Simulated assay, not measured.
Amino acid sequence: MKALFGGLLYCFSLLVQVHGTNFRFYGYEPQRISPAIQYTRPVARPELPLGTQAAQNAISATGRQCKSRPLDLVLIIDSSRSVRPGEFEKVKIFISDMIDTLDIGQYATRVAVINYASTVKIEFHLKTYFNKVDMKQAVSRIEPLSTGTMSGLAIRTAMNEAYTEKAGARPPSQNISKVAVIVTDGRPQDKVQEVSAQARASGIEIYAIGVDRADMQSLRLMASTPLDDHVFYVETYGVIEKFTSKFRKTLCGEDICSLGTHGCEHICVSTTDSYYCKCQDGYILNEDKKTCSREVKPVAVVDPCKCESLVQFQRTVQSAIQSLASRHILSTDLY
């Protein structure tokens, strides 16, 4: 998953040039980015409304549609009392901008949002929305919870509730990466080290983004390793908003199925590093895992005349008559 946010490093360096030194992030100085990470500076283009066809064309790489690799992505946002109303609106813009960078869909990236303070609220699950319009409208309706900062409880909720198959997470057999991004501006009021370790051990990759008053040590305890790639810090929520607009291509990866159907008769579904075939409704996948056959459902035979019951009834009556006849013959013989 290093590729998922590796491009952030380059985007941060751009912001240093444009906005000065009003932010920093753990483990790096912008001028010291490893030369092993090579990037191509994007061609300057006028800003276009997100979601339009023109915008989609603008973020295409070398004429080919740029699509994010499939993820089960859970965004965990701090809405404690320290986050002012205007700042929380910027958090929602940040989430909406991130959604715009993704290839959202049932067989692509699924997104859930967890809102937390002293309590935790799952705003929507991974299975709730499979299109950007409805998802972003749901984000716009999120209200802050105020009060405390229970980051550990939020991560536990993500692990135990948001990342279940019942909630829309895909099974391990599909090899879909589970990624959590937590955004906070404070110090957790509960213990995050143990629950974060459990979440990471369960296969969840955690990115921690700290804003303003965020405690850097807590971010390090929550995030996955290497910390240089998973811990980020910005001084204001305003910088986050500008930052997201600079890395629309960061989450772009190779969608294996976009390169061809790979022999799938109906539907090719990309995973993190492979693919699998799926059939349309009413069909089942054959043993070759490529072709599909129409599903034949067993037809229940209804006996309108209830013949089986009638036969049983006749047998019961016949047995009763024979029993009565035997008794009659016996009583006659006695007289």
Rank of each mutant, 00 (worst) to 15 (best):
K2T: 08
K2R: 14
L4P: 00
F5Q: 02
F5N: 07
G6H: 05
L9A: 06
L9Q: 03
L9H: 08
V16F: 09
Q17C: 14
V18A: 14
V18Q: 13
N22G: 12
R24C: 07
P30S: 11
S34H: 10
A36K: 15
Y39P: 00
R41T: 13
A44C: 10
R45P: 01
P46I: 12
P46M: 12
E47L: 14
Q53Y: 07
A54N: 08
A55G: 11
R64C: 07
Q65I: 11
L71H: 00
V83P: 03
R84W: 12
R84N: 11
G86L: 09
G86P: 04
K90T: 07
K90D: 09
I93N: 10
I95S: 05
L102I: 08
V113L: 12
A117C: 08
F124M: 06
L126D: 04
Y129R: 02
F130S: 12
N131H: 08
L145K: 02
G148R: 09
S151A: 13
A162M: 02
R170Q: 04
R170K: 09
N175I: 05
V181D: 02
P188R: 06
P188D: 09
Q189P: 10
V192Y: 04
E194C: 10
E194V: 14
S196V: 05
A199L: 09
A199M: 02
R200K: 10
S202K: 12
I206H: 02
R213A: 14
D215V: 06
M216K: 08
Q217V: 13
A223N: 04
T225C: 10
P226R: 13
H230S: 05
Y233N: 06
E235S: 11
E235A: 12
Y237H: 07
V239A: 11
E241T: 14
K242H: 15
F243D: 01
K246P: 01
K246W: 13
F247S: 06
R248S: 07
R248F: 09
K249F: 08
I256G: 01
C257Q: 00
L259C: 09
L259E: 07
H262W: 03
G263K: 06
C264N: 02
C268V: 00
C279Y: 04
Y283H: 07
L285N: 02
E287W: 10
K297S: 04
K297C: 10
K297F: 11
V299Q: 14
A300H: 14
D303G: 03
D303P: 03
K306C: 06
E308S: 13
S309L: 10
A320E: 08
I321N: 08
Q322V: 04
Q322P: 00
A325N: 12
S326F: 06
S326H: 10
I329F: 09
Y335I: 14
